[in-house]
Design a protein around this nucleic acid. Structure first.
Lengths: 221, 221
DNA sequence: ATTTAATAGATAAAAATTTATCGATATGTC
DNA sequence: GACATATCGATAAATTTTTATCTATTAAAT
């Protein structure tokens, strides 16, 4: 009993990171009029182990899958929605309207996944006051009042590395509880504040090392 | 013996992803004139477990760390360099010179980590022929000859989702062996070709779910 | 020279994550 | 309606990754 509880209540981080993939593919199926989808099919398309997919879906699905056919597409989308909180948009601010900041600010794809960046901040006075696809850019001084008035809890950092910690501190002071960090520096935050680092060099490292290994392997054969 | 062999020869993917972090922080220390660094110090600054750091460093370091002081900064940088292949730049092409493509193409930071994007491709004829900070943008038709002539093995995909698979196929046909995929679709590749997905929605999913959990927890207390 | 404290390194334990296996069950077919 | 088959769900095994513990070593302080 206790074992089952822990395994069913605790959510694997890795599961979470796969849910958007499922969601995206299942959405596509739905738009094509497909009614059911099996874990095997999902696994094939996403290059995953079928059992892994089944376990993930078991976590989020409100109803059991039907043997032989799989899961109802519509229901599954609703369930993933609920599970991830996609249906209630989370509002966020973004600081640093440089190239990366602009992508995030203007890319409507994130809205589909529950993130609504309401405004961008930048210290450059020439940017402030402008709009990018309807998103206002404000000076840093306005952060505190806006965050508190709108009760925003997510902050996105897309400033140069050497300014990231300062911006982070300011965010925390304003009451931000979760930070999505695109700067390549580790952030110090007090207990209770979450940080997710988006780390391009790390990804690159994994890829290029694997490539080197695979080439070494081939040349030996 | 066999146990030790497997653990010392097989590199953990998670280790690889942390090496750039170490490298970056240690570089900073070096520029400040620091001579030695301990795993404990590294762990503190990067919010990691000291033992974890020690194990990682044991993998890459050519010399043992000195008790009481740690590792020599300069030597460690050289070792990580060697280990990751940072010192021999790997050349890459990039397809899709949109907003994300431009960031990668023009951001010199990646060169520091061993990636040299030599040219960008785009199907937009108005972009072709232009340069971005010295990087040429070429039409898609030139991909094959260039990749083969320069023996390039890394391809970066920054095109819209619905074109990613087609571009991927073309890359593979040209001889690309490792693909860094920024489109939010899984890519089908033949055996022997590596893919690393850069997946912003997945990261976001983890963060926002953790936030929801942490808030639920607080409100219960 | 002796003591002290901080650290590496090795080994073991724990936790997290992925993969394999097996009986049960519903679906489609004959 | 009986049968074959593909899938699910659950349990167990394997693998990967992280954390804990203990001893030996060495630089610094006394």
């Amino acid at each position: 009993m206790s074992k089952q509880n822990t395994s069913s209540l605790v959510v694997m981080k890795s599961t979470l990171s796969r849910l958007p993939l499922y969601y995206s593919y299942i959405s596509k199926l739905e738009s094509e009029g497909v009614e059911s989808v099996s874990s095997v099919l999902l696994a094939e398309h996403l290059n995953l182990n079928p059992v892994l997919v089944r376990k993930d879906l078991a976590q989020v699905s409100s109803v059991a899958g039907y043997p032989r056919t799989g899961f109802k597409v519509k229901q599954l989308l609703v369930d993933i929605d609920n599970y991830m909180g996609y249906n209630k948009l989370d509002e966020a601010i973004l600081v640093g309207v440089g190239s990366m900041g602009r992508i995030l600010l203007t890319n409507s794809k994130f809205a589909k996944f529950g993130l609504n960046i309401v405004v961008g901040f930048d210290k450059d006075p020439y940017l402030c006051g402008l709009q990018l696809e309807g998103k206002h850019i404000l000076p840093m001084e306005k952060m505190e009042s806006l965050v508190q008035r709108m009760r925003i809890r997510i902050g996105i950092i897309t400033v140069p590395d050497d300014q990231a910690q300062r911006v982070c501190d300011q965010m925390v002071k304003c009451g931000i509880k979760a930070i999505w960090n695109f700067a390549f520096v580790p952030l110090k935050v007090p207990e209770g504040v979450l940080v997710k680092n988006e780390n391009l060099p790390s990804s690159l490292a994994v890829l290029s090392h694997q490539l080197a290994k695979s080439i070494a392997l081939q040349s030996k054969q």
